[in-house]
Design a protein around this nucleic acid. Sequence first.
RNA 1: GCGGACGUGGCGAAAUGGUAGACGCAGCAGACUUAAAAUCUGCUAUCCGAAAUGGGUGUGCGGGUUCGAGUCCCGCCGUCCGCACCA
Length: 849
Amino acid sequence: MTTYTPSEIEARWQTAWDKAGTFKALRDPSKPKYYVLEMFPYPSGRIHIGHVRNYTMGDVIARYKKSNGFNVLHPMGFDAFGMPAENAAMASGGHPKEWTYKNIDDMVEQMKPMGFSLDWERMFATCDPEYYGQQQALFLDFLEAGLVYRKNAVVNWDPIDMTVLANEQVIDGKGWRSGAEVERRELTQWFFKISDMAEELQDALNDLDDWPAKVRLMQENWIGRSRGLEFSFERSDGGDPISVYTTRPDTLMGASFVGISPDHPLAKELAATNPAVQTFREDCNKGGTTAEALDTAEKLGFDTGLKVKHPLDPNWELPVWIANFILMDYGTGAIFACPAHDQRDLDFCRKYDLPVVDTFFDLENGAPVQKDAFVPPKEQKVRWVDHFAGLTEATGQDAIDATITFAENAGWGTGKTQFRLRDWGLSRQRYWGCPIPVVHCDDCGVVPEKKENLPIKLPDDVSFDIPGNPLDRHPTWRDTPCPACGKPAKRETDTMDTFVDSSWYFARFTAPRAETPTEKADVEYWMNVDQYIGGIEHAILHLLYSRFFARAMQITGHLPEKAREPFNALFTQGMVTHAIYKTQRQDGRPVYYYPEEVELRDGSAFLKEDGKEVDIVPSAKMSKSKNNVVDPMNIIEQFGADTARWFVLSDSPPERDVEWTAAGAEASYKFLNRVWTLCQRISAMEDGDSSQDVALRKELHKAIHDVTMGVESFGFNAAIAKLYAFANILSKSKASKPAMREAIMTLAQLMAPMTPHLAEDIWHHHGGEGLLANAPWPKADESLLVDDTVTLPIQINGKRRAEIEVPADMDKAEVEKIAMATDAVKKALDGGSAKKVIVVPGRIVNVVV
RNA sequence: GCGGACGUGGCGAAAUGGUAGACGCAGCAGACUUAAAAUCUGCUAUCCGAAAUGGGUGUGCGGGUUCGAGUCCCGCCGUCCGCACCA
């Protein structure tokens, strides 16, 4: 007897699909389309087991939809620009381009054996000039439409690497690579006008019914809509009034001082004549803009000596302070402080000995502010002191609304909606990115490049031996005639943030070789992405940027109206984790061991070398430094792709993390082996007992129903459990050969989305017609799903005491009669009568005594 | 600080308000084998009991709604995640 040899089976069927062009996606208006997309990988060089899980889920959906008659688009590409390529070049002297394309080749080599139903002909990398050239064309269109602009902005600057760092790249105030103290620096940068769409981006979240609520909520918090009042304080010295924004205008009678940001124009103006102000501003700019840096930063203030008039009482003067905690790019960059009802303001006022005035009290306790600021929820009713809108007892929200109305009527303020969302700064002082296609001309200023000159390609002859941007110091690349006047001019040397590259690739997949960013007929047909799958780590940035891009592309005519929201459904999958085995050295530092170095016994781990017990940290994120990474290629070599695919889907629900265990992978392999053996056994069997056929067919159709439901609802682990259960039933069945054959072939069909190679092999072994990959999905026969008789549990006062077997269609009264006649019920009633009897047909009987 | 999710056997986990623990791992017993591995069969929440189509307990804790709660509501405790000087 032959054995299950995945390497042979998998190669054979991959070749067959390839030859037949089974997964090639062609536009076909006669068929409904389905676009499945997994977030494309960064070409690090190795496929990670997390990728395998992500693409397997997408592949299950793609194959399932194909068998349900959809014309499926399932593409793959690479998010190929970014810092790791430059870092590799700096570390080992190669070129980012070679490094990247080599990695892409390696990864494609590793992905092909997985048997994903991908249309490889559509593959591209974002570092292909054919791709980023079209991205430059989009940029020019956005520029013309006013969706991109240039402005000064404060950024994290690494003085050693000489580049801007993203907030995530600043650790404890130091550059993550150089270790240098990060400075705040003002630079002229390009920005996408995403804040213009804040309202729309937030409102439209409500319609994304097939997105996880968690992701929608995270985006909502990020966009951060708030409603408040904007008004101005007149200056006592007659200077320009100071405009402020507040969400708590109701606390105006508790104002203590007016604060402005160190970057506020007034602060700059004062600094010009007063060196002390300038020194203070510089002190504020030390340290990064990261959350940690801000969290630990002490509140600093500087009294300008200026005074402003309270809008409700011209005789009430408030001092103007410069304070380091006030952000220039939120609201107006100026506030009024109410220490009684804001902890941060209270801290500041205590430090600088400024007055604290209560504006409302707790209804019950009534006490004035003592240790902490009194900040009740806005819905809570409080007692107001001297409220100018005439309130005595009201909630904070009512007071806010009344105050805004009052201010608008009196003409000294206007209600305003503010967003937390800032414009997206896209300039990076990097080589390995998409060049920003503009030219700086001494006469004409900033001039967009002509579209016929695109792509503006990156030069190949660059060096990474010294820090800074190689484009900046390239001898000739910058030189170019001005597109407007033709005189010698200089190119922009900043490149685009790599998030730009991934913000529209989904649209490009619909026509990856088009001479324009998109092709009308293709985006009309293929958009939107019907199912998008990826990690929760992209919940905010990538998904928000893509939503912005889809709108911007729609405005500039590159996408149809329906693609304003590009992803109809989103699924965020969990990680693949693995236990860590470690011990501690005497100096407290951990020593990590590879899984091969330890032996597992009764839930404990021992070193093979000397039998010493080691600590187990379960379910940890895979990390090279912790020696707990599993390489999918090893798994494929050992067990085959189908086993790897089966395992990553089983055990845990897809949205949750799944722990990779050697035992689990082996169990998957054993199961596939069993199914394969069963397939052989059935073809070799003599005829069986046909009286068993109906029972088997009923189980089969239940399995069809359950697996279909599981796949439809992303319950892959539950679908797999059903497949195990049915395979167990089938292997024990004594039914006739035709019934067994029908069952194993249908089992193969049901397994095909998860283990396509084995399924295809079984299908052919039993004479299935054509490729299983093209076969229609089996339909459950409703009449076989219902049993003739059902077993009903009988509860007495909600506790299960007995069960009865009755015909499924028996009416309630009849069931009740039988139930009441059981020994358990008779005993419980003890001659008396039941208070109540509940009969749920086909479910349960509950007798209340 | 603000927002959210989750909490079920030794472990990963199932369960439209209707028999809690499907399925898998681990464990135990048996068959096959000279033996082991592989494979196959059976058992496996927990306590009492020799056993029982015996009984008690049981889905983090405390209450509530309901004939009936892992599931719904209220309050705690714990774990994880996101955001955070946002006026």
